[in-house]
């Protein structure tokens, strides 16, 4: 298969492990994760940065992976939803809170919300309800009406969680 695009190798840390891939330059981070590295937990919905389904953390900060060049995570640390649980499979307090509070229905937005919540709790370990609501302004959930998601983050924060076992 021929490609009209140049390719480049990108090497980075994904959920604590070193990975590398050779990708065509226009590849977005979400495509690198889903199509090249088999990490399909991060989803594409709007593909225009406004829905949050594709949220991952790059060096601890949330980005829209649908509009972030894969080659721009070279040497960076990336965290996706697959990295939230511990290696032995035990869920993070945030993940458990989402289950306990029924903070998901179809689940398509859930990885994005979990990553946003992880970023929030890393920045602010005890957010108020208002702060959580505002932090999630850029993440759409079409199923739940948001209340249980906010409740889950409050609950996880109450247990002193920072959102992840992984890096």
């Amino acid at each position: 298969m021929t490609s009209p695009y140049q390719s480049r190798r990108v090497q980075f840390t994904l959920n604590g492990r070193s990975v590398a891939s050779v990708v065509p330059l226009p590849t977005m981070l979400v495509e690198l994760l889903r199509d090249h590295l088999g990490h399909s937990g991060t989803k594409v919905s709007c593909d225009t940065q406004v829905c949050g389904a594709c949220t991952v953390l790059v060096d601890g900060h949330p980005v829209s992976a649908c509009t972030y060049l894969a080659i721009d995570v070279d040497d960076a640390s990336v965290q996706s939803v697959e990295g939230l649980a511990a290696p032995d499979g035990s869920l993070s307090p945030l993940q458990q809170a989402f289950i306990d509070e029924f903070a998901l229905q179809c689940g398509f937005c859930t990885p994005g919300f979990l990553m946003m919540a992880t970023a929030l709790l890393q920045e602010n370990a005890s957010p108020t309800r208002r702060e959580i609501v505002e932090y999630f302004e850029g993440n759409i959930c079409r199923c739940s009406g948001y209340r249980p998601i906010v409740q889950a983050v409050l609950s996880a924060a109450g247990h002193g969680a920072e959102g992840g076992h992984g890096e």
């Binding site: 940065q49 949050g52 949220t55 900060h61 949330p62 829209s64 932090y135 302004e137 850029g138 993440n139």
Partner: peptide, 9 residues
């Protein structure tokens, strides 16, 4: 401005 992703990116 925007949302937290826009504010970091």
């Amino acid at each position: 401005i925007g949302n937290p992703r826009v504010r970091w990116q």
